[in-house]
């Protein structure tokens, strides 16, 4: 079944996205990784729904896709419009993880 193969491929990519989230180096790399991870979760759930014979789970995937987008935008707004207060360095700087 190719659905299984595709699931494995998506899981492998999730692992790679997570490696990027762990490595950084900037906070934007991590946001990118989290966003990518979210879309891969959507694909995973669609695929899981198919090989467990429960495609109704697609409603969840639908909601995940939108929430992931809203979350990413919210986080970026947060970084950009500086509500990070006066404490600590700006997150755009390279940090040592």
């Amino acid at each position: 079944m190719m659905v299984v193969g595709a699931s494995i491929a998506v899981l492998v990519t999730m692992a790679m996205a997570m490696a990027r989230a762990l490595l950084g180096p900037t906070v934007y790399d991590r946001v990118l990784a989290v966003n990518m991870f979210g879309t891969k979760t959507v694909l995973t759930i669609a695929l899981i729904g198919f090989f467990t014979g429960r495609p109704e789970f697609l409603d969840l995937a639908l909601a995940y896709g939108l929430l992931n987008f809203i979350g990413t935008i919210a986080v970026l707004k947060f970084f950009q419009f500086g509500s990070l207060g006066a404490s600590g360095p700006h997150p755009g700087e390279t940090e040592s993880g």
Binding site: A17, A21, G24, V27, A33, V34, G38, E95, S96
Partner: peptide, 11 residues
């Protein structure tokens, strides 16, 4: 780095 931690929590 706590911002990185928050991102990882999202994952």
């Amino acid at each position: 780095n706590l911002v990185a931690v928050v991102m990882l929590m999202g994952i």
